[in-house]
Amino acid sequence: MYDAPANKQSVDQSNQKITARNVQVFYGDKQALRDVSVDIEDRTVTAFIGPSGCGKSTFLRCLNRMNDTVAIARVEGDIRLDGEDIYHPMVDPVQLRAKVGMVFQKPNPFPKSIYDNVAYGPKIHGLTRSKSELDGIVEESLKRAALWNEVKDRLQESGTGLSGGQQQRLCIARAVATGPEVLLMDEPCSALDPIATAQVEELIDDLRQNYSVVIVTHSMQQAARVSQKTAFFHLGNLVEYGETGTIFTNPQDPRTESYITGRIG
């Protein structure tokens, strides 16, 4: 089902992209996440699974500080990207999000042309010096998102006119165009039909060659299909984290086992 690299058992320090220690998240008075500590590896697909409301999306949104846009949210603990504290007061969340891109649950293309959607990131970050360079990035990003062949003749049409699966791949292309090092995906397939889901999953697997991908998913099958590492969240706690194969075949925690066998969730 998935091909775990042979050296996965002995994770070397340099391969860790994000390290999170004792992360707590509060929405107002309510604690949404308790003491989460995770190491996310580079060039790996990491899946967060768990029943709804377990805090997996909340944690994902901590990794690029999207929670900053929610007025009542408060994050405690230590999250490091390449060893740098991303909640350090000197860190500009904007700069962080350029490195840690995000794809959302519902496809959310801007009401602009396909081209402008993809070119948006490079433009705001000033990544290109010429139109042809920008054209190049757009084309490469669309190719990378496996959308190029479908839209190359209608780049000036509105992105909202595409089908659901195409829209989601457009959003992935949009995220890729910015040149991120980590891609966060919040249930990217939940609004898609099975065929579109298969296309996106295939794409995720390909993206692993260049990026560290973190995916939140409702579907255990999906986690098993695309990820190498899996973290199981339950009621705001990180219950278990490890090799996807181990989690699914030999879970250590009884809660994980109940979830995987369908008794909770």
Partner: peptide, 11 residues
């Protein structure tokens, strides 16, 4: 969602 999309790209 449009705002999220844009912030998520580092705008």
């Amino acid at each position: 969602s449009l705002r999220d999309g844009s912030y998520g790209l580092g705008a």
